[in-house]
Write a protein that binds this DNA or RNA. Sequence first.
DNA 1: TTGTACGCGTTATCAT
DNA 2: ATGATAACGCGTACAA
Lengths: 344, 344
Amino acid sequence: MDNKVKSTINDVAREAGVSKRTVSRVINGSPSVGQATRERIDAVIKELNFQPDKQARGLASKKSYLLGLIYDNPDALYIDQVQRGCLTVCTNLGYELVVHPCHWQEDDFVEDCLNFISRSNVDGVLILPPVSESKKLASALRANNHPYVRIASADLDDHANIVISNEREAMQDIAEHLVSLGHKDIAMISGPSPFCSSRERLEGFTDSLKKLNIDLPAHRVIEGQNSYESGLEIAKNIFSGTDLPTAIFANNDEMAAGVIRVASDLGIKIPEQVSLAGFDDNIFASRIIPSLTTLRRPVQEISVVATKKLIQAINPQNKAVEQTTVIKPYLITRESTAKCIKED
Amino acid sequence: MDNKVKSTINDVAREAGVSKRTVSRVINGSPSVGQATRERIDAVIKELNFQPDKQARGLASKKSYLLGLIYDNPDALYIDQVQRGCLTVCTNLGYELVVHPCHWQEDDFVEDCLNFISRSNVDGVLILPPVSESKKLASALRANNHPYVRIASADLDDHANIVISNEREAMQDIAEHLVSLGHKDIAMISGPSPFCSSRERLEGFTDSLKKLNIDLPAHRVIEGQNSYESGLEIAKNIFSGTDLPTAIFANNDEMAAGVIRVASDLGIKIPEQVSLAGFDDNIFASRIIPSLTTLRRPVQEISVVATKKLIQAINPQNKAVEQTTVIKPYLITRESTAKCIKED
DNA sequence: TTGTACGCGTTATCAT
DNA sequence: ATGATAACGCGTACAA
C-alpha cells in the first residue's frame, strides 16, 4: 500500500493523460466532462488513492471544509451527541468539525467567536443553546457574512438558519401525563428566566395545564438555575412547607436530581407522595433511583438536520432541499411519576 | 473596526516598508530581525489586525495548525473534559481541535484514522483510552511519521508519546480506604480483561489488598463490561448468593450505579450492609443515592499535559521541556462506603 | 469537452 | 539583517 506518498492532482492528470483542469472538474463534479474521460480519471484517482489537499483547496477557493461548533453548555452528553450527529453528515461530505467552547456571559464573547472563525477559517458555524439565543452573535455573523445555523428552542431566526426544538409543545405531553395520573396541585421549578428555553417550557406548561383545567399559580412556580445545587435549595424550600404539591416538574434533570436527593434525605417518597419529572433525559435520568420521567430531545437528529442546513448555507448553488425546521421532544415515562393518591 | 477586510502579509509588508519575507520572519519569531524593524512590523500587524492565513501557511509549510482528537468512549463527560483541557493549550498556541470519534473494534479502524489524518491534515493526534491501547494504531502512526500522544493507564509507549494515568497505584488508596473501614471480604467487579485499565486496576487492587493482608480470591472477582447493564447483571448474581461480601469495588461508576439499583430493588442497604466504590467520578457519582465513593482522574490536567507534549512532538526544534508523564487519580470519599459492621 | 495560465497567502531557498 | 523569487496544490477566467 503506497500510503506514504501523497499524490497530487498533477500526478492524477499525468497518469490519466489529461490536464489538471479536467481532473479538477471531475473532483468537483462538473457535468462538462466526457464519460470516458471521467471514468479514466476516476480510476486513476482510486489507483493513486488521491485526496485533494484541503489546505490548497481552501487557499484557492476560499473554502476550508471545516465546520465550527460553538457552545457553552455544561451538559457534556448533549454536546457529545451533537458532535456525533454532526460528524455523520460531515464525514460523508468531506467536512471536518472544529470545536469551540466559549463563555457567552463574558463581554468579549462575540469578538472571541468572530476571532475563532477567522483564525480557524471555518466555512460556517453551528451554534448550540444557550449561546444560540444570543442576538448579538447572530447579527455579527450575519454582518460578516458567516454562514451559521442555530439550534434553539424558539423561532428566533430565518428558518434557513435555525433548527427548533419545540419544547413549548412538548410540555403538553408531560402536562397531560401528570393530569392523567390525577395530579391537580402541581409545582414547577423553572429555568433561568433569561433563557428562551425556560420561557418556552414555563409557558407551554402553564398553557397546557390550563387547557386541562388545572391552574399553575404563581406561588407554585419557583425559578431555578438549572443546576443540581439549585435543585437542592428549591426542593428544601418546597418540602419545608406544609402543603406539598402532589407533583413537581423540574426544568431539567439536574434539578430533578436535586429534588430526589432532598426528598430522600427528608424521607419523602417519590413517586408515592410526590411525583417528579424532568427534562433532557440526561445520562443519570435512567440511573437514578427512582428513575426519572422526563422529556428527551432527539439531539442527534436535530444536529444532523442542522449540519445539513449549514452545509447548504455554505453552498448556495446546490438548489435548496426542503429541510425540517421543528423537532419535538418526546416523553419518556419512568418510575418518578405515579398516580396521585391525594383525595379531592 | 475594520474587521471586514482580512489583511495579508503583503499589506503588512507594504505598510511597514519591508519585504514580506521579513514579515514572515517576525511572525515566526525568527531571531535574525533587527530590533527596530521588528517593532515597526509588530505595530503594523496590530494596526491591521493581521492574522496569518492557516490555509496558506499550511500549504507552504506542511503544517495545518490543526490537532486531531481520536476516541471511542461512551463517557461524554470524559471527552468533554479532555476537549476543554486540550483547547486551553491549543488556543494559546494558535492550534485548533478537530474531533474524530471512531469505532476501534472494527476492522478498518486504523485505516479510518489514517484516512482522517490525511483528509483533515491535522499535524498530530491525541488518542484517548481505550483506543490509545491499540498497538496497531500506534505502529501505523509511527510508520507514517504522524506525531501522536496517547493517554492511557499503562506504560506502553515512549514517554514522549504518552501520558499515563497511574490507576494501578490509585487502587492502593481505595484498598486502604476499605480496609481501614474494617472490610475483609471484598469483591471486585472488574472491567473487560482486554483493556489495560482493567488489568491495571485489578492487579493494583489485588496487590494492595495483599499488602494489607487481605485476600481477593478468584470467586470474588467477576468480569463486567463497564456498562450499567453489566453492573445490573453482576449485582443480581452477587446479591443472590448466601454469603455477601461486605464491600464491592466496581471498575467504573456506571457499573456501580447498576449495583446501587439492584441493591435498592432487593432492599439491601448501601453502605449499611455493603459498601460500594467505583471509578471515574462520573457525573452521577455525586448525584446518585447513596453518592459514590470513587477514584477521579484529573482528566483536564492530563489532557493539558498531553496536548503540550503533542505540540512539542510536532515542533521538535523547540528544545524539549521536561514534561510530566504520570498522573495519579485520587480518592473521593462519599456515602457509599462505611464501617464494616460484620463481626469477625 | 478540454487545456493554459495565473492567483490564493504563506514559507523556503538563495542571494546580498 | 534583509529581499527577490520560487514553490506549495488547487480552482478558475479565458481560450481553444
